[in-house]
């Protein structure tokens, strides 16, 4: 614990961080690694040229308390961005802003600019229904509906009226299950309840359910936290395959997972975005002391 406060005394006076990508960040390393220390801005490269999702100065409030402080981040096309950080750091809250799932929580307020392909997500005329079809979500705990496997996957296409014929629907279901790598395991029992599958299978079913409506972005909120290591490995493989067609934002508790599946990694701390960089950079040569302290396991 003593290392955490090692250089607290000699902390460099607060330095205004630029919110644009800045190459030179020489002074930053000398910052205090105290988990309660103030973060004044994001270091690293939070922005990219071909951004699918663009977030600027996002603030999120639950009633009076602020959960997210002034976060700016881009998520590139067909990229996997991992969001890591200690629990309660706001990474899940941030993720839920991207398809407006926070709307369902009473008293939750989102400020800032968020856009998907240049269209505002929180615009006054935006309809959340097609938005959520474009930005799908996979949740922490596998949550298949208490329906058959087939109906679970067909649910989205049915409510959106994507398939015009039964055969088309069958095709969508099969394709989605194939992509989720579940087809061979369940093709003989499509009429059995989805809740009867194992945890890992359930989560893949949820992924199949999400991709059945052809989303552009998939948000994953700690998708493996309830799974065993083998099922986790299977999902991680799947994420890598899905990257070809989808943009993926994944919140994870496991740094190894972030290192394995993502191209870029964002580190959140107490509702603030501390550092964004290529995954390799973050895990081998973090710019910010807090990031380093976190990835070396000094707090979590």
């Amino acid at each position: 614990m003593s290392t955490m406060t090692l250089n607290a005394g000699e902390a460099v006076p607060a330095q205004k961080e630029a919110t644009q990508p800045v190459a030179e960040q020489t002074e930053v390393k000398s910052r205090a690694a105290n988990p309660n220390s103030q973060v004044d801005g994001t270091v690293g490269s939070p922005f990219c040229d071909d951004a699918k999702l663009r977030m600027r100065n996002v603030n999120v409030f639950y009633g009076e308390s602020q959960a997210i402080h002034d976060v700016s981040l881009d998520i590139g096309r067909n990229q996997v961005v991992a969001m890591i950080g200690p629990s309660g750091c706001g990474k899940s809250t941030f993720l839920r802003c991207l398809n407006r799932m926070n709307d369902t929580i009473e008293g939750c307020r989102v400020e800032g600019e968020l856009s998907l392909d240049g269209e505002a997500i929180y615009g006054p005329k935006v309809d959340v229904v097609p938005l959520r079809a474009r930005v799908g979500m996979v949740f922490q705990k596998p949550n298949p509906f208490p329906k058959s496997i087939y109906d679970n996957v067909a649910y989205g296409p049915k409510i959106h009226g994507i398939a015009s014929r039964r055969a088309e629907l069958d095709e969508i279901v099969e394709n989605s299950l194939r992509r989720a790598g579940l087809w061979n395991e369940v093709k003989d029992r499509l009429d059995k309840p989805g809740t009867g599958l194992s945890g890992g299978q359930q989560q893949r079913l949820c992924i199949a359910r999400a991709i059945a409506v052809s989303p552009e972005v998939i948000l994953m909120d700690e998708p493996c936290s309830a799974l065993d290591p083998i099922a986790t490995a299977r999902i991680e493989e799947l994420i890598d395959e899905l990257r070809e067609n989808y943009t993926i934002a994944i919140v994870t508790h496991s740094m190894q997972q972030a290192a394995r599946v993502s191209q870029r990694t964002a580190y959140f701390h107490l509702g603030k975005l501390v550092e964004v960089n290529d995954t390799e950079t973050v895990f081998t040569n973090p710019e910010h002391d807090l990031t380093e302290a976190y990835i070396t396991g000094r707090f979590g």
Binding site: N99, M101, T104, V128, V129, P130, L131, R132, A133, G136, M137, F139, K141, N143, P144, F145, P146, Y155, G156, I159, H160, C206, R209, A210, V213
Partner: peptide
Amino acid sequence: VPQSLRDGALGLGST
């Protein structure tokens, strides 16, 4: 009924 089921449906774009 668990909230996660509602989230699952809403997350797919159900009204």
